[in-house]
Design a protein around this nucleic acid. Structure first.
Lengths: 173, 173
DNA sequence: AGATCTAATGTTAGTGACTATCATTAGAGG
DNA sequence: CCTCTAATGATAGTCACTAACATTAGATCT
């Protein structure tokens, strides 16, 4: 069912693929699709890395500024995502990158990650407002880098992430 | 018509307000609404500040890093948005902040601003990828600060923006 | 004034993502 | 073999949006 959807998205594009078509292609009914995924875009959105990142941030020395701790935490957490995972991530992200109407789903997806990051920062003594800002900035950079990554030739996810973090650090001069 | 929509959004919430209801309340037909706004969320999304920001970035000394130039440019451009404008911005943003399903519209709205910023950076010699990352990071921070601002007591938009920029600069240590 | 031309509006009908409700079936446990 | 539950199906409805065509109101020209 997941596979049926991805296949059709690849062939015809996301917007041109109706849920009805996915259901037929998977040999089920439309209702069943919605019972499993809730929404059409849920097929593309799953992201088990929030706890990893939160943990990475919690592990940082407590004298770092909010944004610096966030960057270091992300770096530590995502440095070695297994290669097999990056292949799947890339397939889904490629569809997202090609589809403007999915910007919303991605944004909503980020809310959870943002909350995880800012919670981790708050528990380190950063105030709520600053924590949210730091989380949003880091995630914004990360997403931009990922969307760029899926269109390039380089398979190395780690390098793409590193690039995003370095740019944010660049305000250092 | 714009006013009719905002009024209903305030009273019942965005999701609970159908376009049909807005149309009736404004004394027109649904079709007319869509001819004017295109989408339901377009009522809330208008944002004439992109050129200002791009200009502010172009004005920065050319030895600054991408993110530093972006921050300085935003600071220069938005420092003195007239108070009258902030009142309108706040009313609309308050609805957006309360409505998760508008995250998508906001994200799509940001794409234009992101492009304006990253174009300005590219024309200063920054490469595309880094420019997009810097733009996304700065905008992420800015948005988080704005969404926080609308829920607080402080009317000062300038202070909210300044806070966002300071957090991003915080990676300096 | 009267004919005309255009832009804004209305009407109708349809698509596609969902949701609610109720009926059906299939498999697990007794 | 019966029953009870969980997954699926069928039907109908809502809401955002689109396409096609009809209608009206005002400005322009003669």
């Amino acid at each position: 069912m997941q596979e049926a959807a991805l296949q059709l998205f690849d062939e015809r594009g996301y917007d041109a693929t109706s849920v009805a078509a996915i259901a037929v292609h998977a040999g089920v009914t439309e209702m069943t699709f919605f019972r499993h995924f809730g929404t059409k875009d849920a097929v593309l959105m799953s992201d088990p890395y929030d706890p990893l990142i939160a943990d990475g941030i919690a592990r940082q020395p407590s004298d770092l500024a909010a944004i610096a701790a966030t960057i270091a935490g992300i770096r530590g957490a995502l440095a070695k995502v297994p290669l097999a995972a990056t292949v799947i991530i890339r397939r889904r992200l490629r569809i997202v990158a090609r589809t403007p109407s999915l910007a919303g789903a991605m944004a909503r997806n980020n809310v959870a990650t943002e909350a995880a990051i800012s919670d981790a920062l708050v528990s380190r003594g950063v105030n709520r407002a600053d924590a949210r800002i730091a989380a949003a900035a880091a995630l914004g950079a990360l997403n931009a880098a990922l969307l760029d990554w899926v269109d390039g030739d380089d398979d190395d996810l780690g390098a793409a992430i590193e690039r995003a973090l370095r740019v944010v650090e660049g305000s250092r001069g």
